[in-house]
Protein backbone atom coordinates (compact mmCIF):
# COMPACT_ATOMS: atom_id res chain seq x y z
CA UNK A 1 0.00 0.00 0.00
CA UNK A 2 2.81 2.38 0.88
CA UNK A 3 4.23 2.01 -2.59
CA UNK A 4 0.96 3.16 -4.02
CA UNK A 5 0.85 6.41 -2.06
CA UNK A 6 2.97 8.33 -4.59
CA UNK A 7 0.55 7.20 -7.29
CA UNK A 8 -2.38 8.48 -5.26
CA UNK A 9 -0.56 11.77 -4.85
CA UNK A 10 -0.04 11.88 -8.59
CA UNK A 11 -3.76 11.42 -9.09
CA UNK A 12 -4.44 14.22 -6.63
CA UNK A 13 -2.10 16.48 -8.57
CA UNK A 14 -3.75 15.53 -11.85
CA UNK A 15 -7.21 16.24 -10.53
CA UNK A 16 -6.53 19.26 -8.35
CA UNK A 17 -4.22 21.22 -10.65
CA UNK A 18 -6.98 23.05 -12.56
CA UNK A 19 -8.45 24.13 -9.25
CA UNK A 20 -5.59 26.57 -8.74
CA UNK A 21 -6.67 28.75 -11.63
CA UNK A 22 -10.05 28.99 -9.92
CA UNK A 23 -8.40 29.98 -6.65
CA UNK A 24 -6.36 32.70 -8.34
CA UNK A 25 -9.40 34.09 -10.13
CA UNK A 26 -11.52 34.06 -7.02
CA UNK A 27 -8.87 35.94 -5.08
CA UNK A 28 -8.55 38.47 -7.88
CA UNK A 29 -12.31 38.87 -7.98
CA UNK A 30 -12.36 39.40 -4.23
CA UNK A 31 -9.83 42.21 -4.51
CA UNK A 32 -11.77 43.76 -7.36
CA UNK A 33 -14.99 43.65 -5.39
CA UNK A 34 -16.59 41.11 -7.67
CA UNK A 35 -17.94 37.67 -7.05
CA UNK A 36 -15.80 36.00 -9.67
CA UNK A 37 -16.10 32.81 -11.66
CA UNK A 38 -16.75 29.49 -9.91
CA UNK A 39 -13.79 27.71 -8.40
CA UNK A 40 -14.27 24.86 -10.83
CA UNK A 41 -14.46 27.08 -13.91
CA UNK A 42 -11.38 25.58 -15.56
CA UNK A 43 -12.84 22.09 -15.21
CA UNK A 44 -15.99 23.27 -16.92
CA UNK A 45 -13.93 24.94 -19.62
CA UNK A 46 -11.82 21.87 -20.24
CA UNK A 47 -14.90 19.68 -20.26
CA UNK A 48 -16.60 21.93 -22.76
CA UNK A 49 -13.53 22.19 -24.98
CA UNK A 50 -13.07 18.44 -25.02
CA UNK A 51 -16.54 18.06 -26.44
CA UNK A 52 -15.88 20.44 -29.31
CA UNK A 53 -14.64 19.91 -32.83
CA UNK A 54 -11.65 21.75 -34.21
CA UNK A 55 -10.73 24.32 -36.80
CA UNK A 56 -7.27 24.21 -38.26
CA UNK A 57 -5.52 26.84 -40.28
CA UNK A 58 -4.49 25.75 -43.74
CA UNK A 59 -1.05 27.18 -43.13
CA UNK A 60 -0.37 24.82 -40.27
CA UNK A 61 1.20 21.43 -40.47
CA UNK A 62 2.30 18.63 -38.22
CA UNK A 63 3.69 20.71 -35.40
CA UNK A 64 0.47 22.51 -34.82
CA UNK A 65 -1.31 19.19 -34.27
CA UNK A 66 1.55 17.65 -32.39
CA UNK A 67 2.30 20.40 -29.93
CA UNK A 68 -0.70 20.22 -27.57
CA UNK A 69 -0.51 16.48 -26.87
CA UNK A 70 3.28 16.42 -26.88
CA UNK A 71 3.46 19.40 -24.59
CA UNK A 72 1.01 17.79 -22.23
CA UNK A 73 3.03 14.59 -22.21
CA UNK A 74 6.22 16.44 -21.38
CA UNK A 75 4.53 18.14 -18.48
CA UNK A 76 2.92 14.91 -17.30
CA UNK A 77 6.30 13.22 -17.35
CA UNK A 78 7.85 16.02 -15.37
CA UNK A 79 5.07 15.68 -12.81
CA UNK A 80 6.19 12.13 -12.05
CA UNK A 81 9.35 13.46 -10.45
CA UNK A 82 7.68 15.91 -8.10
CA UNK A 83 7.44 14.78 -4.49
CA UNK A 84 4.29 15.60 -2.64
CA UNK A 85 4.87 16.78 0.91
CA UNK A 86 5.88 14.01 3.24
CA UNK A 87 5.55 11.40 0.49
CA UNK A 88 8.08 10.72 -2.23
CA UNK A 89 7.74 11.24 -5.94
CA UNK A 90 6.57 8.45 -8.20
CA UNK A 91 9.99 8.25 -9.81
CA UNK A 92 13.34 9.62 -8.86
CA UNK A 93 16.96 9.20 -9.81
CA UNK A 94 20.09 11.27 -9.34
CA UNK A 95 19.83 14.35 -11.47
CA UNK A 96 16.10 14.13 -12.09
CA UNK A 97 15.72 17.87 -11.57
CA UNK A 98 17.75 18.42 -14.73
CA UNK A 99 15.36 16.19 -16.61
CA UNK A 100 12.37 18.04 -15.14
CA UNK A 101 13.68 21.41 -16.25
CA UNK A 102 14.53 20.10 -19.68
CA UNK A 103 11.10 18.52 -19.99
CA UNK A 104 9.61 21.93 -19.36
CA UNK A 105 12.00 23.19 -22.02
CA UNK A 106 10.81 20.50 -24.40
CA UNK A 107 7.25 21.60 -23.87
CA UNK A 108 8.33 25.11 -24.73
CA UNK A 109 10.04 23.81 -27.85
CA UNK A 110 6.74 22.33 -29.01
CA UNK A 111 4.72 25.41 -28.16
CA UNK A 112 7.11 27.77 -29.95
CA UNK A 113 7.16 25.68 -33.09
CA UNK A 114 3.39 25.30 -33.06
CA UNK A 115 3.13 29.06 -32.75
CA UNK A 116 5.45 29.62 -35.68
CA UNK A 117 3.57 26.99 -37.63
CA UNK A 118 0.56 29.26 -37.96
CA UNK A 119 2.47 31.98 -39.78
CA UNK A 120 0.70 34.59 -37.70
CA UNK A 121 2.50 37.67 -36.50
CA UNK A 122 0.75 37.46 -33.13
CA UNK A 123 1.85 33.91 -32.50
CA UNK A 124 5.35 34.78 -33.64
CA UNK A 125 5.28 37.67 -31.20
CA UNK A 126 4.27 35.39 -28.34
CA UNK A 127 6.91 32.86 -29.32
CA UNK A 128 9.62 35.49 -29.54
CA UNK A 129 8.76 36.85 -26.12
CA UNK A 130 8.54 33.43 -24.57
CA UNK A 131 11.89 32.41 -26.01
CA UNK A 132 13.37 35.63 -24.72
CA UNK A 133 12.23 35.31 -21.13
CA UNK A 134 12.76 31.59 -20.82
CA UNK A 135 16.48 32.12 -21.31
CA UNK A 136 16.55 33.91 -18.00
CA UNK A 137 13.95 32.01 -16.08
CA UNK A 138 15.52 28.64 -16.74
CA UNK A 139 18.93 29.80 -15.62
CA UNK A 140 17.40 31.22 -12.45
CA UNK A 141 15.57 27.97 -11.84
CA UNK A 142 18.84 26.06 -12.16
CA UNK A 143 20.52 28.37 -9.69
CA UNK A 144 17.70 27.76 -7.21
CA UNK A 145 18.02 24.04 -7.71
CA UNK A 146 21.75 24.33 -7.12
CA UNK A 147 21.09 26.19 -3.88
CA UNK A 148 18.56 23.58 -2.79
CA UNK A 149 20.97 20.84 -3.72
CA UNK A 150 23.72 22.40 -1.64
CA UNK A 151 21.42 22.93 1.33
CA UNK A 152 19.99 19.44 1.26
CA UNK A 153 23.08 17.53 0.14
CA UNK A 154 21.14 15.76 -2.51
CA UNK A 155 21.14 15.65 -6.28
CA UNK A 156 17.53 14.74 -6.89
CA UNK A 157 14.29 16.59 -6.35
CA UNK A 158 13.05 13.82 -4.17
CA UNK A 159 16.11 14.11 -1.99
CA UNK A 160 15.88 17.89 -1.76
CA UNK A 161 12.24 17.97 -0.74
CA UNK A 162 11.05 14.61 0.53
CA UNK A 163 14.13 12.88 1.94
CA UNK A 164 15.50 16.07 3.43
CA UNK A 165 12.08 16.50 4.96
CA UNK A 166 12.60 19.98 6.25
CA UNK A 167 16.16 19.37 7.47
CA UNK A 168 17.11 21.66 4.65
CA UNK A 169 16.06 24.54 6.89
CA UNK A 170 18.72 23.72 9.47
CA UNK A 171 21.44 25.33 7.40
CA UNK A 172 20.33 28.89 7.14
CA UNK A 173 16.62 29.71 7.21
CA UNK A 174 16.78 33.34 6.09
CA UNK A 175 18.89 32.44 3.08
CA UNK A 176 16.56 29.62 2.15
CA UNK A 177 13.68 32.06 2.31
CA UNK A 178 15.44 34.02 -0.40
CA UNK A 179 15.53 30.85 -2.48
CA UNK A 180 11.80 30.38 -1.88
CA UNK A 181 11.23 33.95 -3.01
CA UNK A 182 13.24 33.44 -6.19
CA UNK A 183 11.42 30.18 -6.88
CA UNK A 184 8.20 32.11 -6.58
CA UNK A 185 9.43 34.59 -9.19
CA UNK A 186 10.26 31.70 -11.47
CA UNK A 187 6.78 30.35 -10.85
CA UNK A 188 5.28 33.65 -11.94
CA UNK A 189 7.32 34.05 -15.08
CA UNK A 190 7.10 30.43 -16.17
CA UNK A 191 3.35 30.43 -15.71
CA UNK A 192 2.91 33.73 -17.49
CA UNK A 193 1.42 35.58 -14.55
CA UNK A 194 1.47 39.26 -13.69
CA UNK A 195 3.89 41.10 -13.60
CA UNK A 196 5.43 39.16 -16.50
CA UNK A 197 2.37 38.43 -18.59
CA UNK A 198 -1.28 39.21 -18.19
CA UNK A 199 -3.45 36.11 -18.31
CA UNK A 200 -6.56 38.29 -18.51
CA UNK A 201 -5.60 40.40 -21.44
CA UNK A 202 -7.65 40.28 -24.60
CA UNK A 203 -5.10 42.29 -26.59
CA UNK A 204 -3.06 40.14 -28.91
CA UNK A 205 -0.22 42.62 -28.99
CA UNK A 206 0.47 42.27 -25.28
CA UNK A 207 0.09 38.52 -24.96
CA UNK A 208 2.76 35.92 -24.46
CA UNK A 209 1.22 32.62 -23.53
CA UNK A 210 -2.25 33.33 -24.85
CA UNK A 211 -0.83 34.53 -28.16
CA UNK A 212 0.64 31.12 -28.74
CA UNK A 213 -2.77 29.53 -28.29
CA UNK A 214 -4.68 31.94 -30.53
CA UNK A 215 -5.25 29.50 -33.36
CA UNK A 216 -5.80 26.37 -31.35
CA UNK A 217 -9.30 25.21 -30.64
CA UNK A 218 -11.34 22.41 -29.17
CA UNK A 219 -9.47 19.52 -27.54
CA UNK A 220 -6.15 21.14 -28.40
CA UNK A 221 -6.85 24.17 -26.28
CA UNK A 222 -8.12 21.89 -23.52
CA UNK A 223 -4.74 20.17 -23.52
CA UNK A 224 -3.01 23.54 -23.56
CA UNK A 225 -4.97 24.72 -20.56
CA UNK A 226 -4.54 21.49 -18.69
CA UNK A 227 -0.79 21.47 -19.36
CA UNK A 228 -0.60 25.05 -18.09
CA UNK A 229 -2.44 24.05 -14.92
CA UNK A 230 -0.09 21.13 -14.36
CA UNK A 231 2.91 23.34 -14.98
CA UNK A 232 1.66 25.69 -12.31
CA UNK A 233 1.34 22.72 -9.98
CA UNK A 234 4.90 21.55 -10.74
CA UNK A 235 6.50 24.91 -10.22
CA UNK A 236 4.39 25.68 -7.19
CA UNK A 237 5.47 22.35 -5.71
CA UNK A 238 9.04 23.56 -5.39
CA UNK A 239 8.44 26.48 -3.00
CA UNK A 240 5.53 24.58 -1.48
CA UNK A 241 7.76 21.59 -0.88
CA UNK A 242 10.30 23.80 0.85
CA UNK A 243 7.69 25.49 2.99
CA UNK A 244 5.79 22.28 3.76
CA UNK A 245 5.34 21.74 7.51
CA UNK A 246 7.10 18.39 7.70
CA UNK A 247 7.13 18.50 11.47
CA UNK A 248 3.43 17.75 11.64
CA UNK A 249 3.99 14.19 10.43
CA UNK A 250 0.51 13.88 8.98
CA UNK A 251 -1.05 10.65 7.77
CA UNK A 252 -1.58 10.11 4.08
CA UNK A 253 -4.80 12.04 3.70
CA UNK A 254 -3.68 14.75 6.03
CA UNK A 255 -0.50 15.07 3.99
CA UNK A 256 -2.39 15.37 0.76
CA UNK A 257 -4.73 17.94 2.21
CA UNK A 258 -1.83 19.90 3.67
CA UNK A 259 0.08 19.87 0.41
CA UNK A 260 -2.97 20.92 -1.52
CA UNK A 261 -3.43 23.69 1.02
CA UNK A 262 0.12 24.95 0.64
CA UNK A 263 -0.20 25.01 -3.13
CA UNK A 264 -3.58 26.71 -2.90
CA UNK A 265 -1.93 29.30 -0.65
CA UNK A 266 0.69 29.88 -3.34
CA UNK A 267 -2.11 30.34 -5.84
CA UNK A 268 -3.96 32.72 -3.54
CA UNK A 269 -0.77 34.69 -3.06
CA UNK A 270 -0.45 34.90 -6.83
CA UNK A 271 -3.99 36.19 -7.06
CA UNK A 272 -3.31 38.79 -4.40
CA UNK A 273 -0.12 39.90 -6.12
CA UNK A 274 -1.92 40.21 -9.44
CA UNK A 275 -4.45 42.41 -7.74
CA UNK A 276 -1.99 44.97 -6.54
CA UNK A 277 0.77 45.24 -9.11
CA UNK A 278 0.83 46.32 -12.71
CA UNK A 279 2.56 44.41 -15.42
CA UNK A 280 6.20 45.16 -16.15
CA UNK A 281 7.41 46.64 -19.37
CA UNK A 282 8.77 43.85 -21.53
CA UNK A 283 12.25 45.29 -21.50
CA UNK A 284 12.29 45.18 -17.72
CA UNK A 285 11.49 41.49 -17.43
CA UNK A 286 15.07 40.37 -18.10
CA UNK A 287 16.29 42.93 -15.60
CA UNK A 288 13.95 41.58 -12.96
CA UNK A 289 15.03 38.03 -13.68
CA UNK A 290 18.68 39.00 -13.61
CA UNK A 291 18.10 40.47 -10.18
CA UNK A 292 16.49 37.19 -9.16
CA UNK A 293 19.52 35.35 -10.48
CA UNK A 294 21.80 37.59 -8.46
CA UNK A 295 19.73 36.86 -5.36
CA UNK A 296 19.96 33.15 -5.90
CA UNK A 297 23.71 33.31 -6.44
CA UNK A 298 24.04 35.14 -3.14
CA UNK A 299 21.85 32.52 -1.48
CA UNK A 300 23.93 29.75 -3.01
CA UNK A 301 27.15 31.25 -1.70
CA UNK A 302 25.73 31.63 1.79
CA UNK A 303 24.35 28.12 1.80
CA UNK A 304 27.59 26.58 0.67
CA UNK A 305 29.65 28.39 3.26
Amino acid sequence: MNNLYPLFNLIIALTAAPLMSGVINRVKAFFAGRKGPPLLQLYFDIGKLLRKGAVYSRTTGVFFRLAPPAGLVFILTALLFIPCGAYPAVLFFPGDMVLVVYLLGAQRFCMLLAALDTGSSFEGMGASRDAHFSVFSEAVLFLCLAAMSVASGSVSLNGMLFTAGGRIWQVSPPVLLVVVFVLYIVLLVENYRVPFDDPNTHLELTMIHEAMALDHGGPDIAMFEYAAALKFWILASLPAGLLFPYGMKPDFFGNSALFLGVIALTAALTGALESCAARLRLVKVPQMLTAAAALSVVALIFLAK
Binding site: A54, V55, F122
Partner: peptide
Amino acid sequence: LIAAALAAGRLLLRRRKVSFGETWN
Protein backbone atom coordinates in the same frame (compact mmCIF):
# COMPACT_ATOMS: atom_id res chain seq x y z
CA LEU B 1 2.84 8.61 -24.43
CA ILE B 2 2.95 11.20 -27.21
CA ALA B 3 1.83 8.59 -29.68
CA ALA B 4 -0.97 7.62 -27.32
CA ALA B 5 -1.99 11.24 -26.77
CA LEU B 6 -2.02 11.91 -30.49
CA ALA B 7 -4.15 8.84 -31.04
CA ALA B 8 -6.46 9.92 -28.26
CA GLY B 9 -6.75 13.36 -29.83
CA ARG B 10 -7.60 11.83 -33.20
CA LEU B 11 -10.14 9.57 -31.54
CA LEU B 12 -11.77 12.50 -29.82
CA LEU B 13 -12.15 14.35 -33.09
CA ARG B 14 -13.29 11.32 -35.04
CA ARG B 15 -16.98 12.06 -35.10
CA ARG B 16 -16.69 15.79 -34.70
CA LYS B 17 -16.62 18.60 -37.14
CA VAL B 18 -13.08 19.44 -38.17
CA SER B 19 -12.85 22.34 -40.53
CA PHE B 20 -10.07 24.31 -42.11
CA GLY B 21 -9.66 28.01 -42.49
CA GLU B 22 -7.13 30.77 -42.53
CA THR B 23 -4.89 31.69 -39.65
CA TRP B 24 -6.59 34.21 -37.41
CA ASN B 25 -5.40 37.64 -38.34
